[in-house]
Structure formats: structure tokens, C-alpha cells
Design a binder for these strands. Structure first.
Lengths: 153, 153
DNA sequence: TCTGAAACGCACTGCCC
DNA sequence: GGGCAGTGCGTTTCAGA
């Protein structure tokens, strides 16, 4: 697994923005033919640089306009408790992202729902039912200023 | 622009997980032929339910192992200041996400970098140079427990 | 590692139900 | 709205350089 050259990075840049772009079109912008571009993409997939290809959906159109960031601190911090919490969070399909953090807050959760009512209900009947949660603080997104899944390679 | 039926939602579920799945394969799992699936996907794209198709890249492999969440509060909150801040943030390619929040914190930023040193340098030479920033608080991701771009449709 | 050509499969269209 | 058959294009493979 060698390091990536400029062509590889350019391919990643392009596919991170638009994975539907054809290898032919990519080849053209990189002044190559389709074959080497095709080979490189396959290599980037195989070596795990590209994890997957996904469709990004408009959350307001599918009735998930509310995004909340929820900061959670646990009461007890031994290994068993943390693992259990992680397993329980993974089972909640409303949670889109969950990070174990450094510092006084233990976890960041990003949650998408259809309404504040639904969020209230989510906290009441699901999140707060998880044992061992000490502090639970919610922040709401007023407006998405900027969002991209692309890294600056 | 009518509401989505079960087949549309199933297509969204599939494409959010794997956009490389062929219409043929999708058709098979939904007990349909390729044509109606193809038509529906085109409609979902045209009506904006599907915004784009992207490749998701492994951040550690491309040397961006550090993810930080940065909470920013502005000093002054009139319209001009907020707009200007948003424009300045968009120009920083290290920032992957930026949300205007409700509450005492004004903005959430998600930042990916190659090292803590790079983060230090980013704060010092870029973020803190933006005028009108009052409070600036950083949180670091120890471990990504769960991450998906898919909404629970 | 790239080019160029050849084979294959899927996307896409049009017509039928 | 879905099924079916046909066409073109992109993907995929391979020889050669």
C-alpha cells in the first residue's frame, strides 16, 4: 500500500464531489485515457481509500428538518459502561453520528428528526432511558451554513 | 411534487447505503423490472430528493485523523456580522461542516486535520484571525463510534 | 503505467399492457 | 404505473509499448 500520487488525489477530489462522473470524463480532465483511471479507482477502492458510494438526500424533503446536537456525559466511566452505551446508541436509528470525545463531555450525538415534538419524545422515551447517562445537553441547528462529506485531500 | 410511496422510500434507503447498486439489482430486491426503478430514481433526482452522489473516503488513510468540534460565539450579532462570519468560514477548506445554532453558542464547526499541531496552527493563523469571535471552545473526537450520511426514511 | 481496441453489461428509450 | 425488447455508451479486460 504505497502513497498516493497527484493523479490519485485528483481522482479522490473528483469522486468526493460527484461519484457519478464517468471514468471517461475524469480521464479527460486529467489528460489520460479511461483505462488507467479505471485501474486507479479500483485500487483506491480495494485499498480502502474509498469506503463507499452513497446518495445524499435532502433532509427537509424527506421530513427530517430538525437537526440536534446532543452532548452526553456518563455517570460511570469503566470499560463495560462505555461499551454498553455505544451499543445502545447504535441501535437508535435517529442518531446519525456518535463520537466519543476527549474532555468533560463524553459523547457527541447528531440526531435528525421531523419535529421538536419528535425530539422531545426521542429524549423522553429512548435516550434518557439509557442507564448511566449523567448530563444531557441539547443544541439545535438553526441553519446549515456549510456541509460537505469531502475531505481536503 | 407528490408524496413518496413505499417503493420510493425503499429506493432512497438503498441508494443512501450504496449508490453503486445497479437499477437492475434494486429492481430485483423490490420485485420490479429495471424501467420503473430507473424512472423513479430519475424523478427523485429531478425533484431534489437526491441531491448528489459522492464517494466517502477514509479520513485516516488520507492523513486527516484528527476531527475537532469547535463551538464559536460571536461578540456582536447583527445581520452583517453573521453573514460576514459565514462567508469567512466557507473559505476555510479545513471546515467540513458549519451550523448556525440556537442558544448561547452561535456556531458549530467540524474540522478535519492531519495533527493536533495542524489544529493549533489552524486556530492561531486562521480561525482566531476572524474578527468578531467572542468565545471559541474546542472538543476533540477520540473515536468515531457511529457515522452515516443516511437518514432514516 | 499508459494507450488503444475489443467484449460485455447496464443505462436508457419506446412501445406495449 | 409496470413489463419487455432494442440501442448506445460506459465499464471492464487485454495486448502492446
Amino acid at each position: 500500500m504505497e502513497t498516493l500520487d497527484t493523479i490519485d488525489l485528483n481522482i479522490l477530489r473528483i469522486l468526493q464531489k460527484d461519484s457519478k462522473k464517468t471514468t471517461k470524463a475524469i480521464a479527460k480532465t486529467l489528460n489520460l485515457t479511461a483505462s488507467p483511471v479505471y485501474e486507479r479507482i479500483r485500487r483506491l477502492e480495494k485499498q480502502g481509500y474509498i469506503k463507499k458510494y452513497v446518495a445524499l438526500v435532502d433532509k427537509t424533503k424527506i421530513n427530517k428538518p430538525i437537526t440536534a446536537i446532543c452532548m452526553v456525559s456518563l455517570r460511570y466511566h469503566n470499560e463495560g459502561f462505555i461499551d454498553k452505551f455505544e451499543r445502545q446508541i447504535k441501535a437508535l436509528h435517529e442518531v446519525q453520528e456518535c463520537y466519543h470525545m476527549a474532555g468533560k463531555v463524553d459523547f457527541f450525538l447528531k440526531i435528525n428528526l421531523e419535529s421538536l415534538d419528535a425530539y422531545h419524545e426521542f429524549i423522553r422515551s429512548k435516550l434518557s432511558r439509557i442507564e448511566n447517562i449523567g448530563v444531557l445537553e441539547s443544541y439545535f441547528v438553526l441553519k446549515e451554513i456549510f456541509y460537505t462529506t469531502a475531505y481536503d485531500v
